[in-house]
Amino acid sequence: MRPSILSRPPSTLRAVDVLSPRSLEAALLLKAERPDAVPIQGGTDVMVELNFDRGRPPTLLNLNEVEELRGWSRENGTVWLGAGLTYTEAMEPPLSELLPALAEASRTVGGPQIRNRGTIGGNLGTASPAGDAIPPLLVGDAQVKLVSLRGERVVPLHEFIVGPKRNAMSDDELIAGVHVKPVSGRETFMKIGPRNAMVISVVSLALRVDGDVHAAFGSAGPVPTLVRASTDDVHTLPERVADAASPIDDVRGTAEYRRHALRVLTKRALERCLA
């Protein structure tokens, strides 16, 4: 049996429209017309849904061709990350020096193939409790810029994510990117998984010491959560982070372990960032 070629797809397959705008304006126009369109950038979440037959969105809005969403820049003392910034790009200097925790978090995402495709915007859009980019962005006081034909608005990241896999976007909006404060002190990111690469986080923690102390955890509650402290009361922070968590038992770990690990991670992160 030699491999050969499948004939053309049968015309009776259910239609899925794929729209590939080449500018942000065109994308917003399409999104306004087709509010049910599911944006797809790196495909690392959306394609799994398609391949695993979990969903058949009537329309896919392919954002790969939208130049304006790519890259990053410095703007008025903050760092602008386009929604299409990939994890691989976030790991490269000089960006990795401005946002080291995001770089460390990016290094924990999937394998290189996933990091080459997966984007910050996609991570925010999916709004998973386990989204690896979210804790580092939370400690960097990220502000999410949403755009639509109606205009643009800026939503603080902690308000943007409203529940597990739910965000504050309207049907006609797209994520343009985020503004993040570059670190002036120190920050780090840690993620626990049952093996040493390619894991969904069992629990993760980002911590920034930058005047005050900002800690944010993932996979230990319905949404990644930020906990603040002053440098005077850091000794209570491990307990406060653990208390702020509302973890569950699931196939990846137990609630008890997650809470325990958060204490250990917070303590270690403080040692790293205060040393």
């Binding site: 794929v18 590939s20 797809i40 790196g42 495909g43 690392t44 959306v46 394609m47 799994v48 398609l50 391949n51 896919l60 392919n62 790969n64 691989t88 290189p112 193939q113 996933i114 080459n116 495709r117």
Partner: peptide, 13 residues
């Protein structure tokens, strides 16, 4: 020129 998983790229992309 970038290494990717072709299962996660929509053919149309």
């Amino acid at each position: 020129g970038k290494l990717v998983c072709s299962c996660l790229v929509l053919a149309a992309q």
